[in-house]
Amino acid sequence: MDFNEHELYRAAIHGDRDAFEMIIRTHSRALFAITYGILRNREETEDAVQDALVKAWKSRWRVRDPKKFPAWLTMIARHRARDVFRKRRHVVLSDDMTKPLEQEPATGTESLDRHVHSALAALPEIYRSALMLRYFEEMDYRSIENALGLTNGALRGILGRALAAMRKQLRPALTALERP
């Protein structure tokens, strides 16, 4: 974390609204990626990110160490997304959100897309968050470590296991994709 970032978080924690608005500009997309990984619905995701930002502003005084601000912000967004997801499950029992699809032959891009989404849904939440930040927002490892509050070793393990699980799940579909 460079000096500018640290100062920005410190100022936001101390109630500098301009600093917090800058954080909204720079972090909203990462929060969207993580939250979308949990909810996979754009409208709900936007609402959840918005709620998380408002909650973060109201409770910013809880953060003692500015370095931990991005991971703390991410945690608020994840909690908010989980709340929305839990409430949604009470209304509509949607098995396809939580269960991987049966291994059916991939006949086209649409089918493959479905496989990807169901494989993602089957992953533990922290794996999904790391994958979403990497592929959705194209973030490098250092930025993902900051956003999720992880060490480099932990992140490597998470992304390694996440890709291995996806690979296992998608092997039939990917084999079909490789065929001429």
Binding site: I24, R29, F32, E46, V116, Y135, F136, E137, M166, L177
Partner: peptide, 22 residues
């Protein structure tokens, strides 16, 4: 798979006005 994920997930990014809405 990496290539496929790159192409597949990046399409679901929010639009250009997202930050302004937030």
């Amino acid at each position: 798979m990496d290539k496929f994920l790159e192409e597949n997930l990046v399409q679901e990014k929010p639009d250009a006005d997202f930050e302004q809405r937030m």
